Simulated assay, not measured.
Amino acid sequence: MTLMGEERIAIVFDYDGTLIDTMKIKAASYLNAFESVFSTPCSLKDKILESQKRTAGAHRFIQLSDTLGILGLTATDEEKERWSTIYSSLNEKALAKVQLFPSVEKTLDYLKQKGFQLFAVSGIPEHEFLAELSRKRLMRFFIEAKGGDKPAFLASLKQRGFRIALFAGDTSYDQKAAADAGVLFFRVNSDKDIRSLLSYIENMEKIPHGKSL
C-alpha cells in the first residue's frame, strides 16, 4: 500500500468507541450518574439506556435532555451540572483501565508519517478530552483536538481549505454529523475496522484534484 498524504486532506477521529472501546463503560456511567441525581426507579433503567445508546456520540447535555424528555422529567441547571460532574468522575475512574484498540497507535503513526492532517474530536468537555488524550499518550499524533461540539468542528473544515475531509466515528450521530458537514464518513466499531481504514483512505485519495466533497 502506498499512501501519500497531503496537507489538504484531513482525517478526523472520534475518541470514545473509535480509538478506545468504551461503549459499555459509558453506558454504565451514564445510568449510574442519572440514577444518583434523579433517583429514578430500576423500572426505568431500560429507557435510560435506550436513550443513551440512541444519542451516543452527541454532546452529553444533548443526551441528558433526550433522556429527561423521554421520562417526562425536568432538571435545574444545578442538577444538570451535578449529573455531569458525577458522570465525568465515573468515566475517569473506568477509562483509566481501558486500553486503546490494538492497531490505533500504529495506524495513527503511519498516517502522520505520510503527511495526513490528523484531528481528534469528542462530545465530552474539552478539558476532560485533552486530559484523556494526554493520559493515553495520543496528543503527539494530532495537530488539534476539540471537545464538546463535533458537528461545529466538522463544519469548520470547509473554511480551512482541505480538498478532502474524512471523519472516522462509531455512531449514527457521528455519521449524520459528517453528512451535515459534507465530509466523508468511515464507521469504526472494532480493531478490524481500524485496520481497514488504511484501504479506505487509499481509495479516497484517488478522488481527482479539483474535486471536493
Rank of each mutant, 00 (worst) to 15 (best):
98 V>N: 10
143 I>V: 15
112 K>E: 06
150 K>E: 09
176 K>V: 12
40 T>E: 06
133 L>G: 15
129 F>P: 10
9 I>A: 07
81 E>T: 05
147 G>L: 08
40 T>A: 08
130 L>R: 12
5 G>L: 05
160 R>E: 03
193 D>V: 14
193 D>G: 14
173 Y>T: 11
63 Q>R: 14
33 A>W: 10
203 N>K: 09
182 G>N: 03
142 F>K: 14
12 V>N: 11
77 D>M: 08
58 A>R: 15
186 F>L: 01
15 Y>E: 05
78 E>K: 10
153 F>I: 05
180 D>I: 12
42 C>P: 07
185 F>N: 07
43 S>Y: 04
100 L>A: 04
32 N>R: 15
175 Q>Y: 08
207 I>N: 00
10 A>C: 08
121 V>S: 14
4 M>P: 00
121 V>G: 15
182 G>V: 07
211 K>Q: 03
183 V>H: 12
152 A>D: 08
24 K>E: 15
101 F>A: 10
97 K>D: 10
115 G>H: 07
188 V>G: 10
52 Q>P: 13
204 M>F: 11
79 E>N: 06
34 F>H: 01
127 H>D: 13
127 H>M: 10
8 R>V: 01
75 A>E: 00
37 V>A: 00
8 R>E: 11
150 K>Y: 14
131 A>N: 12
71 L>I: 01
19 L>K: 13
182 G>I: 06
162 F>P: 01
209 H>N: 13
191 D>M: 09
196 S>G: 12
45 K>Q: 09
144 E>M: 15
186 F>P: 03
73 L>N: 05
95 L>K: 04
182 G>T: 07
175 Q>N: 07
53 K>I: 08
180 D>W: 11
187 R>E: 09
51 S>T: 13
82 R>V: 08
75 A>W: 00
212 S>G: 04
161 G>V: 03
98 V>R: 14
135 R>A: 15
121 V>Q: 10
113 Q>K: 15
90 L>A: 02
87 Y>H: 14
80 K>A: 03
53 K>R: 13
135 R>G: 13
125 P>W: 00
23 M>Q: 04
29 S>Y: 04
103 S>L: 07
158 K>A: 13
210 G>R: 00
68 L>E: 00
199 S>M: 00
64 L>H: 03
32 N>F: 08
191 D>K: 11
53 K>L: 09
172 S>Y: 12
96 A>Q: 15
128 E>H: 13
163 R>P: 03
17 G>S: 08
28 A>V: 02
170 D>N: 11
83 W>M: 03
117 Q>D: 10
179 A>I: 04
208 P>S: 01
71 L>R: 04
176 K>S: 12
62 I>C: 05
3 L>K: 02
72 G>M: 04
